[in-house]
């Protein structure tokens, strides 16, 4: 049994498909990063998993329970860090955590949970005066009540400074090492890259890519761009390169020509070919891009202005093609 499984899950709001035929599988024990820009359908998906929003089509299970008909059972075994939550301003941190423990019928020590999120020393303070980061950690402490099998965290790092985000990641990793499956959403690739086993990328309500973080990287690193600066106008050598095996894109601009190859091993033949064409190479740059670029391109769908990101457009189409198959 998978931790989360959805079949053609969809949700419409009026004319808008917030989520469209989503097939998601989160395996037990893994950390799954659910990526996408704001408005891509991440929160709607999570809201459907938790019973906040009923689906318009499709079905799904969380820990084997039907998300429409066994929502209370789901929430009994899942720890939830919701998005855009508000604290009970007059209640102390300990009261918040105790409420979660009692509701779940668990026997955790509130101070122990607060200690795990490093809030032990403010347990008696009312949550109304907490900073965003403290509120976020308080919500996480509540999510940890009852030793859940699965943590569903909606943008756990939102509103946190880099240091806070790093601490949040450390806590997530720690919980995962205790055997908890973690499903969390983010609109920042950096947040998930470091700790996720697998990622799914949402855009316009669809899952456009899903893979292990390593293969996503491999797939992406395979694409490289070579930028030559020549001593003559570069247009002349374009025809010679166009027909070469492994070349996916060529762009000539004045004395510069950039060549995108699908496979890193094709770099050397391209350099040889340019050298053999008789022009003098004044400079060669090789741009390998990051996951961050890939994500930016995938999720905005625009040709970004940066050199790195521009390169990703080609990869994007390839990835989307693969995701559609």
């Amino acid at each position: 049994m998978d931790a989360i499984e959805t079949n053609s899950l969809g949700r419409r709001f009026g004319d808008v498909n917030a989520v469209e035929s989503l097939d998601l599988t989160v395996q037990k024990g893994e950390i799954y990063g659910f990526l996408g820009p704001n408005g891509a359908g991440k929160s709607t998906t999570i809201n459907m998993l938790l019973g906040f929003t009923p689906p318009s089509s499709g079905s799904g299970t969380v820990l084997g329970y039907d998300l429409e008909h066994e929502s209370v059972a789901i929430r009994q075994s899942v720890g939830v860090l919701p998005e855009d939550f508000g604290v009970y301003g007059r209640l102390t941190a300990r009261k918040h955590v105790r409420f979660a423990i009692e509701t779940k019928g668990a026997d955790d020590d509130p101070d122990d949970l607060l200690g795990r999120v490093e809030l032990a020393d403010v347990a008696d303070r009312t949550a109304g005066g907490f900073s965003t980061g403290m509120k976020q950690r308080l919500a996480l402490a509540m999510a940890l009540a009852g030793n859940p099998d699965l943590l569903i965290l909606d943008e756990p790092s939102s509103g946190l400074d880099p240091n806070g985000a790093r601490e949040m990641r450390a806590i997530i990793r720690e919980e995962n090492e205790r055997g908890t499956t973690v499903f969390f959403s983010s609109h920042v690739m950096e947040q998930v890259e470091a700790i996720c086993d697998r990622v799914g990328i949402m855009r316009d309500g669809r899952l456009i890519a899903e893979d292990a973080i390593d293969s996503l990287k491999d797939r992406f690193d395979a694409d490289s761009r070579l930028v030559f600066t020549l001593d003559t106008v570069a247009d002349d050598i374009v025809p010679a390169l166009e027909t070469m095996n492994g070349v996916t894109d060529i762009n000539a601009d004045g004395n510069d020509v950039s060549v995108v190859v699908a496979d890193a091993s094709r770099k050397a033949p391209v350099i040889e070919a340019v050298g053999a064409s008789g022009v003098t190479i004044k400079d060669i740059r090789i741009d390998d891009s990051s996951l961050e670029d890939l994500f930016a391109t995938l999720t905005t769908g625009e040709r970004p202005t940066s050199r790195h990101a521009e390169e990703n457009a080609a990869n994007t189409t390839q990835l989307i093609r693969e995701a559609d198959q």
């Binding site: 906040f52 929430r75 919701p82 998005e83 855009d84 939550f85 409420f99 509701t103 919500a139």
Partner: peptide, 17 residues
Amino acid sequence: GERESGSIRFLLGLPNS
């Protein structure tokens, strides 16, 4: 009031029908 403040997400994220 809890819907406007967002604390309803705690109430409904916990096993409360």
